[in-house]
Amino acid sequence: MAMIDFINRVFGKETGSKSIAKERLRLVLVHDRCNISPEILDDLKEDLIRVISKYLEIDVRSLDVSFSQEDQAMALVANIPVIGVKRQNQT
């Protein structure tokens, strides 16, 4: 243990490995619980891009789709940067 770690620990600062364990567990459980493989998630992403691109101009490269968990509920979170709106869809 490095001296700085030791001092941090004595003074109760959280530098322990527990937060790493929790975060790893959180991620692994999200996938276990919804039983979705990375391949399926990729397919889902492709489909989303196709559908949304019909209406909006989106930045495909910085698009992010992932599962997240809040309390007991699971959410599919898609962060899709919009570059522009296609003209034919404006009314």
């Binding site: 322990g16 527990k18 567990l25």
Partner: peptide, 15 residues
């Protein structure tokens, strides 16, 4: 647990 190197009861119940 006190040193932050093991998950606490609350952590595990949360999960």
């Amino acid at each position: 647990v006190r040193q932050g190197d093991m998950m606490s009861i609350e952590d595990m119940v949360d999960i």
